[in-house]
Nucleic acid binder design. Structure first.
Lengths: 236, 236
DNA sequence: CTGTTTCCCGTAGGGTATACGGAATCATGG
DNA sequence: CCATGATTCCGTATACCCTACGGGAAACAG
């Protein structure tokens, strides 16, 4: 695990001359694995399946990638980088909005990201580009040095929480063939047959007052605005 | 899936008289599964493994639980409920703090929760108790009806994001036998050998200014305070 | 003892990652 | 044209996963 030469392969020149030339490349393998995982989930992108897709034997993949864990790490860094956060001439709050949109899109395109842990991330270009983007956005707006990273981490956690939720929604919808909306609708009888009104007075009251009529994105926008306003206020 | 009688089994009286009496109970099975998952991860709590632990054959478990998916759903609702959010006489902000502490503790005790999706949650007492607690905390502080649920959802997402992170940390630490701190330390050479200072000026500048010296909890507290202050301000 | 109900469980089948060692293929130098 | 060395390619074998199906065993009521 943690194969820096592979993660940073674009920055390293290849000095390969002799020997049997490879039929594939790391990027070919990655592209196939990501394509399968996008459509059928991370588990479907098994070594055997990816190999079949590329018309080689399973063990051939181990020529390009040391292990499946490494393959997944490479996949993650790849989609983080491909999200392409670069912007020009945007104010810091707009940059955060851009970050949120792109991150959500990334999870929707690659729902298998929800099946991977990011607390020990691949130390590759994708991860680094994300940190640089956020630290840059939070720097130079007048925040005390000690608070720049705190603000970046808070916002990241908040944005990722909702993006991940969207990704999980997409993943479950594809794998079960049923949208989450339809899933809830199918469980409409729960509220009549099992929900105990007496034990849940606050929910019941709010329900009767129409407090649950929101669309999906509303809560996200509400909280993000509070966070960003709070950060802005701590500058003045 | 979605077996309400099992989820709400405590509210349903058992009318069992005749026939061979069971050796186990749903709660016994759940307890064993949770114990194994706590110590070795969700995958380790396989039907075969749980059965072995209880000295019965694998297929015997299917007498108590319809499928493994149902077992996991029951495990989730169980630990959500056992978190026990009940409080008395706390102000709303303190209640949210209580929620955060208990939720974090739950993820630390049961790190396998990070391997389960909660976007289509088990509709059992644990899930409902959580929603009731949060809606109750956000009600009666003067928020417009439309904003009560938005505030509850925002805060939930934020709190869960950090709690989940703590759980993933615990899970990886146990499964790899290495703490995340030691993991980072082991990768200290990354910054010297692979990190491209020229491409990451904002990170580099902040690093040199000592902006990355924070402890873990600091960022969480920082953002939660902003969120709660924002909610409070929208009341006045 | 009989009838009834319920629990208990053996079998069988299609998937998974990867250590190891040998075969296939290519560029080069003589 | 052949020998050499480097590299890619891949067959095999292992232990575990979930669960449909249906028959055998056990306990209780009367």
């Amino acid at each position: 695990m943690e194969n820096y030469p592979l993660l940073w392969r674009r920055d390293v020149e290849k000095t390969r001359r002799t020997g049997r030339p490879p039929r594939l490349s790391v990027d070919t393998v990655l592209a196939a694995a990501i394509r399968i995982a996008d459509a059928e989930g991370l588990e479907a992108a098994s070594m055997a399946r990816v190999a079949t897709e590329l018309n080689v034997a399973t063990m051939t993949l181990y020529t390009y990638v040391p292990s499946r864990a490494d393959l997944v790490a490479l996949m993650v860094d790849e989609v983080l980088l491909e999200r392409d956060l670069t912007t020009t001439g945007l104010a810091w709050r707009e940059r955060i909005g851009h970050f949120a949109t792109r991150t959500r899109g990334m999870f929707l395109t690659h729902p298998w990201l929800t099946e991977v842990s990011l607390v020990r991330p691949p130390l590759g270009p994708g991860t680094m580009a994300e940190r640089e983007f956020l630290i840059a956005a939070m720097s130079g707006i007048g925040l005390p040095v000690k608070e720049v990273n705190r603000a970046a981490v808070s916002v990241t956690a908040y944005v990722y929480a909702f993006a991940r939720e969207a990704g999980e929604d997409a993943r479950l919808s594809r794998s079960s063939g049923q949208s989450t909306e339809s899933w809830w609708h199918e469980r409409g009888d729960f509220w009549e047959n099992w929900f105990d009104v007496a034990k849940h007075p606050a929910m019941t009251a709010l329900w009767n007052a129409g407090g649950f009529d929101d669309e999906g994105q509303t809560a996200f926008d509400y909280g993000l605005a509070l966070l960003l306003e709070g950060i802005e206020r701590s500058v003045e």
